[in-house]
Amino acid sequence: MDLAQLGFVLLSAVAIAGALGATTIDDLPRALLSLVLFFFGVAALFFMLHAEFIGVVQVLVYVGAVAVLFVFAIVLTRARLQATDIGRLVPSRVLGIFGAAVVGAGLAGVVARTTDVPLPAVAPAGTTAPIGEALMTRYLLPFEIVSVLLTAALIGAVVIALDDGAERRDA
């Protein structure tokens, strides 16, 4: 096992541990910290696969914005866990785990049956400069559409989360 494989196994373990923590820990802030660990693990994997730009954007968007958004949601809802959420294997929960295991086994089975390709030693061109150039030329229209989508989604989020009482006071 060479150094790259060792690093990949370690980072995979970090990502899987983070994902398992985020999906099983019942304490909300701890589950969220586990999610941040998962985001960092995936970002490190992006760096390892030489997609540096996507790795940086992953850290900025997920750890910097999405995780903070989740913290705000927890604070604003003061979400308390129901008794049902704490470690009990109710039938619906067993069914959910079973369904996810079937989907996971199906995906893993498909992967196992495909012919394996070792990743080339030299990464294809596709880091920051080519991505920026493509966004301004061939992918300009999708880029603009996704900007409009993001703006609309953020305005919509503010409108949805707006307090009804405040609306009435303004009117």
Binding site: T23, S92, L95, G96, A101, L107
Partner: peptide, 9 residues
């Protein structure tokens, strides 16, 4: 699969 299990449970 881990994410799906979490979303379902």
């Amino acid at each position: 699969a881990v994410g799906l299990a979490g979303a379902l449970t």
